[in-house]
């Protein structure tokens, strides 16, 4: 079943390849508690009573974000397969003309 044209499919392919690589790596960086990404964590209001509380929240945030990145990467894998299929269909139909 053909849904998108050749350009759209190619766009999806490139975007999903980029997404898979970058999100996988970002997930790894979150997982290893990269300091550079600390500003991207869901920290709520930022009022922490104790240090342990802060560490807890940050730790949870890192893990959460790592999983989120990997989930997004997985969805991009699906996108990749979908656009690849579309691209294949398009290239085949353009050949048969």
């Amino acid at each position: 079943m053909k849904i998108c044209g050749p350009k759209y499919a190619l766009c999806g392919l490139i975007l999903s390849v980029w997404g898979i690589f970058q999100l996988l790596l970002m997930g790894v960086f979150f997982y290893v508690r990269s300091v550079a990404l600390v500003e991207d964590l869901p920290l709520g209001e930022g009022n922490f009573t104790t240090l342990e509380n802060f560490y807890d929240v940050v730790d949870r945030g890192y893990t959460q974000n790592a999983y989120n990145c990997w989930i997004a990467a997985c969805i991009y894998v699906l996108t990749f397969l979908f656009s690849g299929h579309q691209f294949y269909l398009n290239s085949r139909s353009s050949l048969s003309v």
């Binding site: 997404g19 970058q22 999100l23 990404l37 500003e39 991207d40 964590l41 869901p42 920290l43 709520g44 945030g61 959460q64 974000n65 999983y67 989120n68 990145c69 990997w70 989930i71 997004a72 997985c74 969805i75 991009y76």
Partner: peptide
């Protein structure tokens, strides 16, 4: 950051779009 700083498990899908 809108896609990243998100609590809960819907974050992955939002991140997908934001990315």
């Amino acid at each position: 950051r809108n896609g990243l700083a998100r609590e809960g498990w819907d974050g992955g899908i939002v991140l997908y779009a934001i990315f």
